[in-house]
């Protein structure tokens, strides 16, 4: 009974935040959020004002996510950009029982095993954060600038495949947008179609 009530409540919350007109749009202030990471720390978007924030939607069992981790591509991006002051949140919105839903301990072991170095991994099993930003696929990438404005949303790069070899010849939209923004230029490609697996939200 209690469990059913809980699921129903989570679904209701999900529905409330999934209204399309509420989804984040490039050029608008990024919607504020509060989320717990895999170490139990709560992060609030507003506490990172003054810094760039990257959101990376993640599901380690999705072949597209796998492409960017098995190749080491995602880990290098995390390493490079966090070293340059960027806050990088890996976000897991898989609902309980669905692919990619993992415990905090399991995720911490995975991060260590693959050598990932995000600022933190945020757990979003209710899908609330995912729906707030309108995240559709894994990966799906968002960049928020130091003023709190969403400046990029979409694909990680321009090669929508599961083929690791494609990473070498791909244009990485996240790096390009961060480079441009940090140089004081407008982001030349601010919105792209994200590619990957569907985010495993509770239906």
């Amino acid at each position: 009974m209690k469990r059913h009530f809980h699921l129903g409540f989570a679904t209701l919350l999900t529905l409330l935040v999934s209204l399309p007109c509420w989804a984040a749009r490039v050029g608008d202030p990024a919607p504020g959020f509060q989320a717990k990471d895999t170490l139990g720390k709560v992060h609030t978007l507003s506490e990172y004002k003054g810094r760039y924030v990257v959101l990376e939607w993640h599901n380690r069992y999705c072949p597209y996510t796998h492409k960017h981790y098995a190749s080491g591509n995602m880990q290098s991006l995390q390493k490079e950009w966090t070293a340059r002051g960027v806050v990088w949140f890996t976000v897991i919105s898989s609902a309980p029982g669905l692919q990619g839903n993992v415990t905090a301990a399991d995720e911490n072991a995975y991060v260590k095993q693959v050598g990932a170095s995000p600022t933190a991994v945020l757990l979003d099993p209710s899908g609330q954060l995912g729906h707030l930003y309108g995240a559709r696929t894994t990966p799906d990438m968002y960049i928020i600038n130091p003023a709190g404005i969403l400046i990029y949303e979409g694909a990680i790069d321009n090669k929508p495949t599961t083929d690791i070899a494609d990473i070498l010849t791909a244009t990485n939209y996240v790096s390009k947008a961060l480079e441009e923004a940090m140089a004081g230029r407008p982001v030349s490609v601010p919105v792209t179609r994200p590619y990957g697996c569907s985010v495993k939200y509770a239906d």
Partner: peptide
């Protein structure tokens, strides 16, 4: 032939 086959999950 390279393909992606999906149900609730995807397999290349």
């Amino acid at each position: 032939v390279k393909y992606l086959v999906c149900r609730d999950v995807c397999v290349p």
